[in-house]
Simulated scan of single mutants.
Amino acid sequence: MASAGGRALRASYNYLVLGSIGICLYLLGIGFLYSVTGSLNMGDLRILLPPLYGNRIVQTAFIFILIGLSIKCAFFPLHIWQPNAYTYAPSAVSVIIAAAMSKVSVYALIRIIYSVFTLEFIRSYAGVDMAICWMGAIGIIAGSLLAIMQHNLKRMLAYSSVSQMAYIMLGIGLSPITAWGLLGVIAHLVNHALTKGCLFLAAGAFIYKYDLVDIRNFEGLGKKMPYASAAFTLAALSMIGIPPSTGFATKLFLIFASLHATDVFASSAYLFVAVLLLSSLLNLVYFWRVIERMYFIKGGEEMDGGERGREAPLSMLGPLVLLAALCILVGILWLTKLPLPLLDAVLSGLRLEVFL
């Protein structure tokens, strides 16, 4: 990313600095845990920590680990490195960052919460789960509103990712109350990897063929690049939450989780449902701008693909079409399989425990 120079170099530097801060906080938290338990084995820590839940060092360790991994996950409001990194990185790099890298940090956070501290630690501090949920809800709306304001396609997708990662934060906050929360987190990890990977691949194809990144210049693109545009549209519909896509399954599970939390969160749980529904509308707003210009507004001047032809090469279309198809097929899988038995299978593989 830094090889592009200019703003890309600054984006790389910001990512390096903030990523280093996140890792340092995480390692400090691990060091604090070692200082009070004498072990780094996750299984041992799970046994040794419960009597120490009231220990200030353990509490500080959890805060450091949570903040450090939240920076790496780009959770709102610790996402400030993400928009520029996604925007100015080469498209192939953007795909890897968006689809895979942040998910590794989310997995690490899930393992720390469930396998080391356990949900009993979260429950022992009133208001922590509520605070996480509210940060997620605010991030969902804020990221969507920022995405609506963008004209650069990759930057719009970057702020969309801020909103999408906030879904995971909301699910983590709901998971101490109901297993539907964790199911929503796992489903959204899959959903975001598939859909955002597909969207960034499509953006890369548009840039490769016509050097297009400004949404206002996308008139008639659906006719000139039908397969890439169709794949982008399918992934966008999944992100909006149109059934039977993976995005629909994700939001459905999180809505179920919110409704199951009404006894604990009272009216706030219904507000979380409203946020999830509103987020679909906001997603529709910023993705429809792209789809409308691609399919329903005729272009002025004919785009010239030069020697490379009209459509993206097969080497780009293959992964693009595959991911677009998976956005629908995986959604059907999530919706037709019984969710909780499927969740049990995932949890047994991760050696996690959910308290229903």
Results as ranks from 00 to 15, higher is better:
4 A>D: 12
7 R>F: 11
7 R>T: 13
10 R>K: 15
12 S>P: 03
13 Y>C: 06
18 L>Y: 04
21 I>H: 06
22 G>M: 05
24 C>S: 15
25 L>I: 10
28 L>I: 13
37 T>H: 06
42 M>R: 05
45 L>N: 01
58 V>A: 06
59 Q>M: 14
73 C>Q: 11
78 L>Y: 00
85 A>Y: 07
102 S>C: 08
104 V>C: 11
107 Y>L: 02
107 Y>A: 02
116 V>S: 00
118 T>P: 00
142 A>K: 06
154 K>Q: 10
166 A>Y: 01
168 I>D: 03
181 G>V: 12
185 V>G: 01
188 H>N: 10
208 Y>K: 05
208 Y>Q: 06
209 K>I: 02
210 Y>K: 00
211 D>C: 07
214 D>H: 06
218 F>G: 05
238 S>I: 01
238 S>P: 01
240 I>E: 05
243 P>D: 04
243 P>H: 04
246 T>Y: 03
251 K>N: 05
254 L>Y: 02
266 A>R: 13
276 L>M: 11
293 R>I: 07
298 K>P: 03
301 E>Q: 14
306 G>W: 08
306 G>H: 09
313 P>D: 03
315 S>Y: 10
317 L>I: 04
323 L>V: 07
327 C>F: 07
329 L>G: 08
329 L>N: 07
332 I>Y: 06
333 L>F: 13
336 T>M: 13
342 L>R: 02
355 F>A: 04
